[in-house]
Computed example of a mutant assay.
Amino acid sequence: MRAQERRATRAAYIRTLNELYAMSSRELADIGLHRSDIPEVAEEAAKMQRQAA
């Protein structure tokens, strides 16, 4: 994986983490998530970003 692809993947991971951590516990529950799920969901978003590139 090239450096540019790694940066884009990492950016997608961090962006997803930030967006989900900014949500309240109630908002997370409404979409079927718990705070402990956030890193896994962010990793999945990064994988999707990597596959789309």
Results as ranks from 00 to 15, higher is better:
42 A>H: 06
37 D>M: 05
22 A>W: 03
18 N>Q: 14
2 R>N: 14
48 M>R: 15
23 M>F: 10
46 A>Y: 09
38 I>F: 05
51 Q>S: 12
32 G>I: 05
47 K>Q: 06
34 H>W: 02
40 E>Y: 08
26 R>F: 09
29 A>D: 09
22 A>S: 14
7 R>Y: 06
8 A>N: 11
36 S>Y: 02
42 A>V: 03
33 L>N: 00
11 A>C: 00
23 M>T: 07
45 A>S: 10
22 A>K: 10
7 R>E: 13
6 R>L: 12
46 A>Q: 02
53 A>W: 11
10 R>T: 09
10 R>F: 10
9 T>A: 15
21 Y>P: 01
52 A>H: 11
51 Q>Y: 12
12 A>S: 05
38 I>S: 03
24 S>Q: 08
51 Q>M: 14
18 N>F: 09
21 Y>H: 10
48 M>D: 14
50 R>C: 02
33 L>P: 03
26 R>P: 00
31 I>C: 06
24 S>I: 08
20 L>Q: 10
29 A>K: 11
34 H>Y: 06
49 Q>G: 02
33 L>I: 03
17 L>C: 07
24 S>A: 07
5 E>D: 14
20 L>P: 02
9 T>I: 13
8 A>P: 03
33 L>T: 00
39 P>W: 02
35 R>G: 01
26 R>G: 09
6 R>F: 09
37 D>F: 06
6 R>N: 07
23 M>K: 15
12 A>P: 00
6 R>S: 10
35 R>Y: 00
16 T>L: 05
48 M>K: 15
34 H>I: 03
36 S>I: 05
21 Y>N: 08
40 E>Q: 12
44 E>D: 10
40 E>I: 05
7 R>A: 12
53 A>G: 14
28 L>G: 02
30 D>N: 15
27 E>D: 14
23 M>S: 02
2 R>A: 09
21 Y>V: 07
9 T>M: 12
21 Y>T: 11
9 T>R: 15
33 L>K: 00
30 D>H: 09
53 A>Y: 08
35 R>A: 05
26 R>Y: 11
38 I>Q: 01
22 A>F: 07
51 Q>D: 14
20 L>N: 01
17 L>K: 03
45 A>G: 01
22 A>V: 02
29 A>M: 04
50 R>Q: 12
42 A>Q: 07
7 R>M: 12
1 M>D: 10
33 L>H: 02
9 T>Q: 14
5 E>C: 05
42 A>W: 06
7 R>K: 15
48 M>C: 04
49 Q>W: 00
45 A>F: 00
40 E>S: 14
9 T>K: 14
36 S>P: 03
50 R>P: 02
26 R>D: 10
28 L>M: 06
